[in-house]
């Protein structure tokens, strides 16, 4: 279990792996698993819409 850095709710994550992106079940924000022991989450890299090719 880990705390969402955005809304502070506690999130349960099955089979966590460093670098995985998960979604906060409470506020919906995307979070990145930074470490496993302790389980720490940070806001995931931002996402942009772009055009081209």
């Amino acid at each position: 279990m880990a705390e969402c850095p955005e809304c502070s709710c506690i999130i349960e994550i099955e089979n966590p792996e460093v670098g995985d992106i998960v979604e906060c079940s409470e506020c919906g924000i995307e979070l990145e698993i930074i470490s496993l022991d302790p389980l720490i989450l940070e806001i995931a890299p931002e996402e942009e819409e772009d055009w081209g090719e």
Binding site: P45, E46, E47, E48, E49, D50, W51, G52, E53
Partner: peptide
């Protein structure tokens, strides 16, 4: 650098 994901509205 700080990585960013991109979703493009074109195709490739």
């Amino acid at each position: 650098f700080s990585p960013k994901y991109k979703k493009k509205t074109g195709s490739s």
